[in-house]
Design a protein around this nucleic acid. Structure first.
Lengths: 110, 110
DNA sequence: AAAACACTGAAGTATCCACTTGACTATTTC
DNA sequence: GAAATAGTCAAGTGGATACTTCAGTGTTTT
C-alpha cells in the first residue's frame, strides 16, 4: 500500500516535467539512442540520462545498452497507472454528481 | 497552440504534487470548505489556499465564496485534458508497435 | 459592540531538483 | 593502437516552489 503510493507519486512527478514529456513524445514515435534523444532538447547528455533514469524508475520508459549505445523506448506500465488514477478520480466524482442529480429529482417530485 | 502547451504543463505540474493530489482525493468525495480541506493535511490554511489557486488555474478544481466560507469542488476539465494526453501518447505508441508487428510478420514470410 | 471565525496577502526561508562541469570508462572506427 | 564516439559518475550551482509567519479583511455569532 505504501509502495503503491510512492509509485504514483513518482509517476506524476515524472510527467510533471516538460523536458521529460518531450522525451516521451519522441520515444512514442519509436526507439532512440540517448544522444538522438538529447539532440533537439538543447541540454547535456548527462541531464538527459538523469531524466531517463527517472522515467525508467516509474515504468514510463525502458532502456537497454548494447555495445556503447543505449536504446530507449516507451513503456506501457506507467501510462496504465496514470490513466487508472485519473479514471478513479473522475468516476468517484461523477458518481457523486449522479447521486446529487438523483437527490434533486427526488426533491422536485416531493 | 502555445496556450494549450502551457495548460498541459500547468496541469501535470499541478497533479505532480502529493498534497494537491490529496486535496483532489478529498474533493472527489464531495464539496468542502478550505478549513475542512486543510484539517487533515497538517499544513497552514495559507498553504492550502495557495494549492487551491494552482488547482483552479488549470481546471482541476473550482471554488466559490459565499459569505465568509469558500467552497471547493473538483472540476472535470482538467481531468479530461490529462486523460486526453495519456490516450494520445499511448495510441501513438501502440500504433508504432502494431507497425513493428506487421513488419516482423512480413519479415518471417520472406 | 465585541469576540470568534474563515479566510487573504505580503514577505521570507529552506528544501528540492534540473542542469552543469569536468574527469572517466567502454566500445567502435580508422 | 590512436582517435572518435556514446555514455557514465560525482559534485556543485541556481532557481523554483512548498511552506511558514504575521498582520490584515470581511462575516457571522453572542
Amino acid at each position: 500500500m505504501a509502495k503503491r503510493k510512492i509509485d504514483i507519486d513518482r509517476l506524476f512527478h515524472a510527467v510533471g516535467d516538460p523536458t521529460r514529456r518531450a522525451m516521451l513524445d519522441r520515444m512514442s514515435q519509436g526507439p532512440l539512442s540517448v544522444s538522438a534523444l538529447a539532440a533537439p532538447l538543447g541540454i547535456t547528455l548527462t541531464a538527459v540520462a538523469q531524466h531517463l533514469q527517472i522515467l525508467e524508475e516509474c515504468g514510463l520508459a525502458h532502456t537497454e545498452k548494447l555495445g556503447r549505445v543505449r536504446t530507449c523506448r516507451i513503456e506501457s506500465a506507467g501510462f496504465d497507472a496514470l490513466e487508472q488514477w485519473i479514471r478513479n478520480h473522475r468516476t468517484m466524482w461523477e458518481r457523486k454528481l449522479d447521486r446529487l442529480g438523483a437527490f434533486l429529482e427526488e426533491d422536485e417530485e416531493s
